[in-house]
Simulated assay, not measured.
Amino acid sequence: MTQVANATETRTDQLRPHWVPTGWFQVGWSTDFPAEIVRPLRYFGGEQVAYRDSDGTLHILDAYCRHLGGNLAYGGRVQNDCVVCPFHGWRWNGEGRNTHIPYQPERPNRARRLRVWPVHEHLGVVYMWHDVEGREPSWEPPNIFADTAPHTAGLEYHSPVPDGQVKFDALTLHPQLVSENAADPIHFRYVHGARHHPVFLRRWEDDAHWFSQIGFGSRWREMAPDSHDGDTLSILVAGVGLNYTALSGSMNTLILLSTTPTDAGTSDMFQTVWLEKLPGDTPEVLRSRMDQAISQLPNDIAIWSHQRFEDPPALATVEGQAFRSFRRWARAFYPEVGGAVRL
C-alpha cells in the first residue's frame, strides 16, 4: 500500500475526512450487471457507465461521450465490446478509447479518452477503485471467507442471492462513521441490546486493513482471546468503505457492509450476508435466520444518518486507545484535495 501511505507525507494529523477518499468501494453485485446491458452509476460526484464485453469482463467508464457529452448510460448499447453513444453512434472500448465513428469510420478520434475506473469482481460483489490523483490500485479487497476470521474460513455457506443482498440508497452518512464501529464495542449494548459491554480480544492494523475481534458475554477478558469460548464478532475494515464481519457462535454468519459516497453528503450502502449451511435449513428456517441477520442494521443507520463527526471526540478512558488508533490509520486514505468538502 505504498502509494496510499505516501499520501500522508504532506499532511498534518488534523486532516479531517473528506468525501473523495482513496480505496476500493462497492458499486453493486454481479447480478446487477447482465450481459449486453449498459448500467448507469453515480459515485464520487460523477456519472459512470458500466457494461460487460463479450468475455463477460465488466468495464466502468466515465459516462459522458467526449464528442458532444451524450450520456452513454442512457440509451447507449453494447456493440463489438464497446459502449455506443446514443447521440451519434461513437464507440468507446473498455480502455476508454474511441474505436469507431460511423460517419468517419477510417478516422476514430485517438486524442480523446474516457476515464477508466479499475474494477474488481469477486464472490458476486463488484468493487470500483477511486483515487483522485489517478493512482492505480495498491491492494485488493479481502476474501471474506479466507481473510476475516480463521475459525469461519473452512465452513460452507448459502449464497446471499437474493435475500442476503440489501441496498440503502442516498443515505446522509459518511463511510468512515460506519467503519468506526470496528473501534467501538461499547455501542453494542445501547444500540443492539447486548447484555454486557463487549471487550476487545484482538486488534491489529496494516496499511490497508484495521482488524478487531470483540467478545460478547461476562466471562471475556480484555485482549485475552482464549479466556472464554463463546460468541465473537470479527471485523476486518479495508480502506474506509469496506467492512467484512464474521459473527461466530452457535450459527456463523458473514456480512460485508460497504459504504460508497455518491456525492458530498450522501452514500449508498450495500449489505451482503452469507449464512452457514446447517442441518435442518428449510426455506422457512433460512428466511428466519436471514431476517435476524439483517434486522439490526437499520438501528445503526438511524444513528449514522444524524451523526456529526466529532473531532476530537470526548472519549472515556476505556475507549481512547482503539478510537485514536483507528483515526490515525484512516487518515492515510484522504489525500490532500483542494476544495474537497470535509466532514
Rank of each mutant, 00 (worst) to 15 (best):
residue 180 E to A: 04
residue 284 E to A: 13
residue 284 E to G: 00
residue 12 T to F: 10
residue 271 Q to D: 01
residue 157 Y to S: 12
residue 98 N to W: 00
residue 208 A to R: 06
residue 69 G to N: 03
residue 240 V to D: 03
residue 172 T to M: 13
residue 62 D to Y: 10
residue 161 V to H: 11
residue 16 R to S: 12
residue 210 W to H: 13
residue 24 W to E: 07
residue 178 V to K: 08
residue 133 E to V: 00
residue 253 T to N: 05
residue 149 A to E: 14
residue 168 F to S: 06
residue 132 V to K: 07
residue 26 Q to I: 11
residue 194 A to P: 06
residue 320 G to I: 00
residue 329 W to A: 07
residue 19 W to K: 03
residue 172 T to N: 15
residue 325 S to C: 04
residue 169 D to K: 14
residue 144 I to S: 01
residue 60 I to D: 03
residue 96 G to K: 01
residue 12 T to N: 15
residue 310 E to T: 13
residue 271 Q to W: 02
residue 49 V to T: 07
residue 192 H to R: 06
residue 8 T to C: 03
residue 242 L to A: 13
residue 111 A to I: 01
residue 305 S to G: 10
residue 287 R to E: 12
residue 155 L to V: 10
residue 257 L to I: 13
residue 271 Q to I: 09
residue 25 F to W: 12
residue 203 R to K: 10
residue 102 P to S: 05
residue 178 V to R: 10
residue 61 L to Y: 04
residue 141 P to W: 10
residue 296 Q to G: 14
residue 206 D to L: 02
residue 61 L to G: 05
residue 114 L to H: 08
residue 55 D to Y: 04
residue 53 D to F: 06
residue 50 A to V: 06
residue 208 A to C: 07
residue 316 A to F: 14
residue 252 N to S: 14
residue 96 G to E: 03
residue 297 L to H: 10
residue 184 D to L: 08
residue 341 V to L: 09
residue 112 R to M: 11
residue 258 S to N: 11
residue 230 G to N: 04
residue 177 L to D: 11
residue 176 Q to W: 03
residue 328 R to T: 14
residue 242 L to C: 14
residue 75 G to Y: 12
residue 210 W to K: 00
residue 254 L to D: 04
residue 30 S to F: 00
residue 135 R to N: 14
residue 281 D to C: 02
residue 220 W to V: 02
residue 323 F to C: 08
residue 274 W to L: 04
residue 115 R to V: 07
residue 332 A to E: 02
residue 98 N to M: 01
residue 24 W to P: 09
residue 290 M to Q: 09
residue 125 V to N: 05
residue 118 P to D: 02
residue 244 Y to M: 05
residue 24 W to A: 07
residue 112 R to D: 11
residue 215 G to T: 01
residue 172 T to L: 13
residue 126 V to F: 09
residue 311 D to Y: 15
residue 138 S to V: 10
residue 23 G to K: 11
residue 231 D to L: 12
residue 63 A to S: 15
residue 115 R to C: 08
residue 89 G to E: 08
residue 317 T to P: 01
residue 274 W to I: 03
residue 43 Y to I: 06
residue 84 V to S: 05
residue 46 G to P: 00
residue 229 D to C: 01
residue 336 E to Y: 11
residue 204 W to Y: 10
residue 267 S to W: 05
residue 214 I to D: 04
residue 193 G to N: 05
residue 243 N to G: 07
residue 341 V to N: 00
residue 48 Q to C: 01
residue 270 F to I: 03
residue 1 M to R: 00
residue 155 L to R: 14
residue 54 S to T: 14
residue 52 R to S: 02
residue 153 A to S: 15
residue 80 N to M: 06
residue 307 Q to M: 14
residue 170 A to V: 13
residue 261 P to S: 07
residue 66 R to D: 01
residue 29 W to H: 13
residue 342 R to T: 15
